[in-house]
Simulated scan of single mutants.
Amino acid sequence: MVLHNRVSAVELRKRLALEAFKRVTISFYQYAKIEDPQAFRDQLYEAFFKLEVFGRIYVAHEGINAQISVPEHHYETFRERLYAVPFLNGIRLNIAVDDDGKSFFVLKIKVREKIVADGITDPAFDMANRGKYVDAQAFNELTEDPETVVVDMRNHYEYEVGHFEGAIEVPSDTFRDQLPMAVDMLKDKKDKNIIMYCTGGIRCEKASAYMLHNGFKNVFHLEGGIIEYTNKAKQQGLPVKFKGKNFVFDERLGERISEDIISQCHQCGAPCDTHTNCLNEGCHLLFIQCEACKQQYDGCCSEACQTVNALPEEEKATLRKGVEKGLMFNKSRGRKKV
């Protein structure tokens, strides 16, 4: 069989819209030694394709990182196939908190150098020496102590729309930049309890190992990240200390954790936490936009992009020629203004 998608995105979205069954959005990861990532990738693709799994999966020598959507009627079979892999047997599956079943429309499995880009080159770094897990109850108890330091290991645009009460933001656009920044920012707190968290656990687990590698003593990381914390806190009747929306890297762009809206529309400043991508394909900027500004700017981030997006398709294609996507698609704190 062909081990990659050959159908257009337009057609795939149509098929998703016509599905008569429900889907479950799941994320999971595991740090483990994979000898042949390409062969493992191909085996996964064949198995998951047959089960109509959609999503994004990265495979590397250091392990696997996955965000996927599984048809409910295939869920048990999917879990059995996954757990049949020795290093994935019994792995925690993070179930989405706020799920419309439309998180993904295609299956993509890619081989990467690492499952999360970290910039670490020190051969002495060892993921086996990582921080201690804390679950929802332990997290709540530890954070009752004002001396506990809570560190958000997500990007600024994730932190902007939602974070734990009192959490420190490491203001960077990339995880690889955040790691040394976190060490520097917390250098006078090496003997304090430090809890690191992220969306599903993969970044904070590596960050905890990096902090220990750099001489920190009491480092913890939130088991399963924000997703698992929220599910467990609600199941156990615990106070949910996360405020706002949890940014997710799929079609939803966020899942509601609390009713608090802690961010503002980037165009008018009104309370808002809805992320969108500028409809001008030559820009595609990720930004926060309220409904009123969406109507005013036709889903674009600026009047300039609105003007370009209104042009005939041939003219827009001509304007896009030669544009470096990396310069236009910019999530940074220095994002362009209207």
Rank of each mutant, 00 (worst) to 15 (best):
G224P: 01
I227L: 13
C268I: 12
F247A: 05
S263Q: 11
L279C: 13
N246G: 07
F249K: 12
G269P: 11
T230S: 11
Q264W: 06
L253T: 05
K234P: 01
N277T: 09
H284M: 07
H266N: 11
P239I: 15
T274V: 11
Q236P: 04
G237F: 06
P271V: 12
S263I: 02
Y229S: 02
L238G: 13
C268S: 08
I257R: 09
D273S: 12
H275P: 00
I226C: 09
L279W: 09
D260Y: 08
T276I: 13
I227F: 12
A233F: 10
V248N: 02
F247N: 01
C283A: 02
L285F: 03
H221I: 03
N246L: 13
L286N: 03
G269V: 02
A233N: 03
A233Y: 14
E255Q: 14
C278I: 02
S263V: 06
S258K: 13
E228Y: 05
I261D: 02
F220C: 04
I261S: 04
G225C: 08
C283T: 00
R252H: 04
L238A: 05
A270H: 13
S258Q: 10
D250R: 08
I226Q: 09
K243F: 08
V240E: 07
H275V: 03
Q267K: 15
L253H: 00
C265R: 00
F247Q: 00
P271W: 01
L253Y: 07
E223S: 15
N231A: 07
Y229P: 11
E259R: 13
C283F: 03
G269D: 07
N246S: 07
P239H: 14
Q267L: 15
H221V: 05
I227Q: 09
Q267E: 10
E251G: 14
T230M: 02
E223Y: 15
F247K: 03
A233E: 07
Q236E: 14
C278W: 00
H284C: 08
N280L: 01
G254Q: 06
N280I: 03
I257C: 00
I261Y: 06
N280Y: 10
Y229A: 02
H221F: 12
E251M: 08
V240A: 07
N280C: 09
G224S: 04
Q236L: 15
K245V: 15
G237Y: 06
Q236W: 14
I227D: 11
D260W: 13
G224I: 04
F247C: 01
H266P: 03
V248G: 00
A270F: 13
R252A: 12
C268G: 07
P271H: 12
Q235V: 12
E281A: 14
G224M: 04
E281M: 12
C272W: 03
H221W: 05
E255I: 08
I226L: 05
N277W: 00
G269Q: 07
L285A: 04
I262F: 06
F249D: 01
K232N: 09
E223G: 06
E281L: 15
Q235S: 13
T274Y: 00
L222E: 09
H275L: 03
F242W: 11
R256Q: 09
G225E: 03
Y229G: 05
P239G: 14
I226F: 10
S263P: 09
H275R: 06
E251K: 13
N280A: 09
N280P: 02
L286T: 01
G269F: 10
H266F: 05
L222K: 10
L285D: 01
F220D: 00
S258C: 04
R252W: 06
Q267R: 10
H266W: 08
N277Y: 14
Q264A: 15
G224F: 02
